[in-house]
Design a protein around this nucleic acid. Structure first.
Lengths: 104, 104
DNA sequence: ACATCAATTAGACGGTTATCGAAACGTTGA
DNA sequence: TCAACGTTTCGATAACCGTCTAATTGATGT
């Protein structure tokens, strides 16, 4: 089965598609996800699910759900290494979102 | 009765309060509000509710609800002139939000 | 005073979502 | 092979939210 990377290519010059703008905005609107994103962005190295759960008082199921949302919005990449999942903030996507908002 | 302007003062140097960050993120997460905000920001002069309703296919009640959300988030100012309401985008608040996000 | 118009409020309805526990899945080391 | 572990999926529940219609408020012009 192909490991399809939740289509979020490099942001094109004409900005993110409207659909992705919406997904990102929704992703950022939940305080828990916002915290998660900050934690991922705060570390220079990759962050694992277990790391996150040590700081966020949520169940594994809920965390998995939020990570999926963040990935589908294109805000993070999930790099799987054996049984672990490592999270990386996609700063270029976040920046593209901010650039778009700045034009309003 | 004092016309309290939905406390959103000038953004301080240490950024917007966490609560407002959340309100702004939520406000931006709804496509309709996002459209409304774009329309308000697009015009150099002020925009009235009636103007908005000509472009957005929603009831007056729904529009009023969305404008309240935007105002409470600090993203717009509502200037009342007789029976009309004129909307103004608060760019300094939007910018403060973007600045904060960029630090993540 | 009255009718009209712009906007808000109240109340209801349906869809979405954050959350959990339990079960399932996939990896790893014994 | 098997048990333990990290993560995901499933199903359920409760809260939230966008939307509407109807009723209300407030301003304007006659």
């Amino acid at each position: 089965m192909p490991r399809r990377p939740a289509k979020s290519p490099v942001p094109s010059s004409d900005g993110l598609p409207e659909e992705q703008i919406h997904l990102i905005a929704k992703a950022l609107a939940d305080p828990r996800r916002f915290e998660i994103l900050k934690q991922i962005g705060g570390k220079s190295c990759a962050v694992s699910c277990t790391d996150l759960r040590e700081c966020q008082p949520i169940s594994a199921a809920t965390l998995s759900h939020h990570l999926k949302e963040l990935e589908e919005a294109g805000l993070i990449t999930i790099v799987r290494s054996g049984k672990f999942a490592n999270l990386i903030l996609r700063r270029e996507i976040l920046q593209a979102y901010l650039d778009q908002l700045a034009k309003i």
